[in-house]
Design a protein around this nucleic acid. Sequence first.
DNA 1: GCTTGACCTTCCCGTGACAGGAAGGATTAG
DNA 2: CTAATCCTTCCTGTCACGGGAAGGTCAAGC
Lengths: 140, 140
Amino acid sequence: MNIKEVADRAGLPAKTIRYYEEIGLIRPLRGANGYRAFRESDLHKLAFLARARGLGFTIEECRRLLALYEDRGRASADVKALAEAHLDDMERKIAELRAMQATLRDLVAGCAGDQRPDCPILAGLAEGTAAGRGGTKPCH
Amino acid sequence: MNIKEVADRAGLPAKTIRYYEEIGLIRPLRGANGYRAFRESDLHKLAFLARARGLGFTIEECRRLLALYEDRGRASADVKALAEAHLDDMERKIAELRAMQATLRDLVAGCAGDQRPDCPILAGLAEGTAAGRGGTKPCH
DNA sequence: GCTTGACCTTCCCGTGACAGGAAGGATTAG
DNA sequence: CTAATCCTTCCTGTCACGGGAAGGTCAAGC
């Protein structure tokens, strides 16, 4: 299989597949012409990666998941721990987003949204009376 | 004021302040020694930026907010539109995270989490029976 | 045989919003 | 005078790729 076919079948851009090879997530063979020659097993791994990425796992988490997937002697506890840590990450992100949303919604609620310049949103950002609460760090 | 003092007062790292200057968000003066000389107005802008970033606005959104903030002839409708667009962005992100969470939670629920290798999480990622639903794109 | 178009390859730069650190100059306290 | 703390610029790295250039390969059709 050439890269376009695996890309279509795995649902990943060819660029992404080349990148995954570069960082060692997959190791496709090479044909005499220099083209990558993907086996069924490569396709499986790529589909696996596409789904794991789709669930928000980072590349490094995907790498560990893939290693566990290929390790017949794995303990499911290890997989579960990884998944639960990721669930916690998502929970934290959601909480952070909700906190930001709540603050901003309060500001928006007080804004007339007309032609006049008076704006509690800008006032809130300028004075900090309502913005940035809840231990929300600048970002990162 | 030197950079350290504004950094402490605005609650931003000095690195970030230099970066904000580099991309044109602020334009502090310069002393004879080459040091940045921050005015009160620069400090205000930086505090404004810190709060806007804390609410999740991107740098470009912050740039527009700052422009509106400084425009005495602004219409509050423009500010409100920007804020509401951002609220929508956050809503979408939350929905995406929740969808991923729900899928992963289903997989985790079926996993024994013991010493045995059998794992519905890995099976789900491999077979795609439950992962990646709801139009969730690989990421981005 | 030749061309056309669709593939494939590598390589390099750009993204967003900074962080880390090196190398060197300025200022201040003791 | 020295030591500590500040300040400066510049370069590299992050994360997960995307865009595009320059050039090689392959299959189909004339």
